[in-house]
Design a protein around this nucleic acid. Structure first.
Lengths: 187, 187
DNA sequence: CCGCTTTTTTGACAAATGTCAAGTGTGCCC
DNA sequence: GGGCACACTTGACATTTGTCAAAAAAGCGG
């Protein structure tokens, strides 16, 4: 839980009472590799902090699994679309390694948001940072060849290549596994 | 300004005092077509509400202008990366039509966020919705052929095709103008 | 309304990528 | 440690897309 508060401290410092309230809201979750944290078709009502491990978010399209994001230590993860809208999730979140997470129910989080302006600020700042991270990722993929995308990945997120199967990486980059293999062969 | 409050009302209802404070923070801006609202190299310290008109966000890459988003009526627009981080913007925002916007300085907005928990909530909810809109857009572009992308655009945002030059649309879709032309010819 | 500029389309060709199938390498479980 | 399943690579071919250049169409300003 200390790691969670370190990460929270990167966004916005909380008063002791707010920090205490936050700590009471989270529960520790341990899951093995391949287990799913979120499954499509169900409403996602929890937000998670990933203390240790790795995971991927994927959805089905034309009978294929499309991986579109990964999460690693210190990330806040959830099926954001479902969490925010309250609609059933179209994506699944699957553990790529045995992992330790801390989860908080949306209901509980809403209570904290109601009670503490500073927690509302914390969450707003977190959304700002997640928004621009997503925007950066989008811009970095726009108009890029397969080679560009893989090279960008190696430069900005080499840990992904070390921890994630290449098939999922190809999917994440929006290219076929064969193409990724050929790109790797040329580097 | 009524339109601004209607849009704000879609996110979160404000008390009369908060609404009054918000209305005092915004200023009306009228700009002609082709004018730039934001230019690269400068820190963007304003958030804008687009009451009437259209605009695009673009950046330079290898001597080319890459358009990566459009804004229309009722959108909140800014160079989010620069606005949030305080770093110089890498993108430009250019009016595609003569437009009417309402702008608020970041400093003023921060004062409002400090004073009113409900305004903090409003902004958090706005960020949530913008985050999932960006995520949807990303997912809708992932692994898509040029034809798929254009068809998706026609289906989900036909107004873009009506109001934006095709060259910018091609750029936005991540394909060349020639390819867009060929795709259109096949439909 | 005309001339000029900009936008869009078209042709030809090269490069990149996807698909399908098969082969090789790696990892896991018994 | 071996066998099997899974992950990754390779080959061949088809399709898509980009690039360059040129032509056609559309829009704007005087």
């Amino acid at each position: 839980m200390q790691q969670l508060f370190e990460q929270i401290g990167n966004y916005h410092r909380l008063s002791p009472e707010a920090a205490e309230a936050v700590s009471l809201g989270f529960e520790r979750i341990t899951l093995p590799k391949n287990e799913c944290l979120v499954t499509e078709g169900k409403v996602c009502r929890h937000l998670y902090f990933l203390e240790k491990g790795a995971l991927r978010g994927y959805y089905q399209e034309d009978g294929k699994e499309i991986t579109h994001w990964f999460g690693f230590e210190n990330d806040f993860v959830t099926s954001f679309h479902s969490f925010i809208t309250g609609q059933p999730s179209v994506e699944n979140i699957q553990l790529l390694e045995g992992s330790i997470l801390w989860g908080i129910a949306k209901e509980r989080l809403n209570e904290l948001l109601n009670q503490y302006h500073e927690i509302e600020r914390l969450v707003r700042i977190a959304y700002e940072k997640y928004y621009i991270r997503l925007e950066e990722r989008f811009v970095n993929a726009h108009f890029k060849t397969a080679t560009d995308r893989y090279e960008d990945l190696l430069e900005h997120a080499p840990h992904i290549v070390e921890r994630v199967p290449l098939g999922y990486i190809a999917s994440y980059l929006g290219i076929s596994p064969e193409t990724l293999s050929r790109v790797r062969g040329r580097l």
